[in-house]
């Protein structure tokens, strides 16, 4: 871990200014991913701006009838919120499928969205990785890729986004609210928040330097039955091979997003339109552009079968 200076910001704009004005600065909230990466010198900030005192830790109702979730709301608090459990069950289910109780107590809403990939070649600084060191190549391609992406990947990077929470947010059409150093706020729909790697896999989202996530907003409840199924080799405390977040209606219509398969939560609205035709039709559309490796080709079939299980459960 490289040496760094540390400060606690008092307002969102001050935090944004502190980071925007310092090329080596980063925000820290829960720290569960950032410190992990700093120990390995995958992240090497020279200054940390701690945002824990910004008061962005409340969940409020919006005038549109949805919820505004402060960026510092812990994963545990978000999953446990009465309104979330009642109206956005897919979000609670996704969060409690991720990490461990200890990590969820510390991890924040904004931080969860900004998690970096768990690709083992990204984590091993001896290996080539375009995400960690642009232009160095991708050791994962042709390597151990069972956990890695099958769609939305590129010749530069086949990493996945590891978040469970984000998969649910994608299916709920959430939006990310930010503020920049000038105090200017904006809202980014979740589907446009994470970028695909292309030939710049080190750019993972659309945030500008110093831009701070202040909240995640959920539109008004969409009804339906809420499902999140995460498939992994052990029963808990592991990243997804494949996960499916789905909101299904009584008439068989609905929407689904997939985790563990792509560099961002994977949802294809045109595929949602096939829901009443069954999992096969949805998967065929959603994964039409899949280009898996020989080690992870099973993920496409697994995604279909997992969705099929949820559809069957919805019918039952």
């Amino acid at each position: 871990m490289k040496a760094f200076t540390y400060e606690r910001a008092r307002t969102p704009a001050a935090a944004a200014a502190a980071v925007a004005g310092n090329k080596g600065a980063k925000f820290i909230a829960g720290g569960t991913n950032l410190l992990d990466l700093m120990k390995l010198e995958i992240e090497t900030p020279t200054h940390l701006v701690d945002v824990q005192d910004l008061g962005l830790d409340r969940i409020e109702e919006t005038k549109e009838g949805g919820l505004r979730i402060g960026t510092l709301v812990s994963n545990t608090a978000l999953a446990a919120d009465r309104r979330v459990r009642k109206d956005y069950g897919v979000l609670t289910r996704a969060i409690v499928a991720g990490a461990s109780g200890q990590l969820r107590n510390k991890a924040t809403t904004g931080g969860n969205l900004l998690q970096r990939t768990r690709c083992p070649y990204f984590y091993d600084t001896n290996q080539a990785c375009n995400k960690r060191k642009p232009g160095s190549g991708c050791a994962a391609i042709g390597g151990f890729s069972r956990q890695l992406g099958v769609i939305g990947t590129s010749d530069s990077c086949i990493a996945t986004h590891p978040s469970d929470m984000a998969i649910a947010l994608r299916v709920l059409d959430a939006a990310v609210e930010t503020v920049d150093a000038s105090g200017k706020a904006r809202s980014i729909v979740i589907g446009e928040f994470h970028r695909l790697p292309g030939n710049t896999p080190h750019l993972e989202n659309v945030l500008q330097p110093g831009e701070l996530i202040t909240a995640v907003t959920l539109p008004k409840p969409i009804g339906g039955r809420h499902f999140y199924h995460k498939v992994r080799d052990r029963a808990s405390y592991a990243f997804a091979l494949v996960s499916v977040a789905a909101v299904l209606n009584e008439d068989g219509s609905g929407r689904a997003a997939f985790g563990g398969v792509a560099p961002r939560p994977w949802r294809v609205e045109a595929a949602d339109a096939q829901m009443r035709s069954g999992a096969g039709a949805v998967a065929k559309t959603a994964f039409a552009e899949a280009r898996p490796t020989h080690e992870n080709a099973f993920k496409v079939a697994l995604a279909e079968r997992t969705l099929a299980a949820l559809i069957a459960e919805n019918r039952a």
Partner: peptide
């Protein structure tokens, strides 16, 4: 009163 992983938290926080 809340359990956390103390390895992933800075003392100064």
């Amino acid at each position: 009163g809340t359990r956390i992983n103390s390895c992933l938290s800075l003392a100064v926080m």
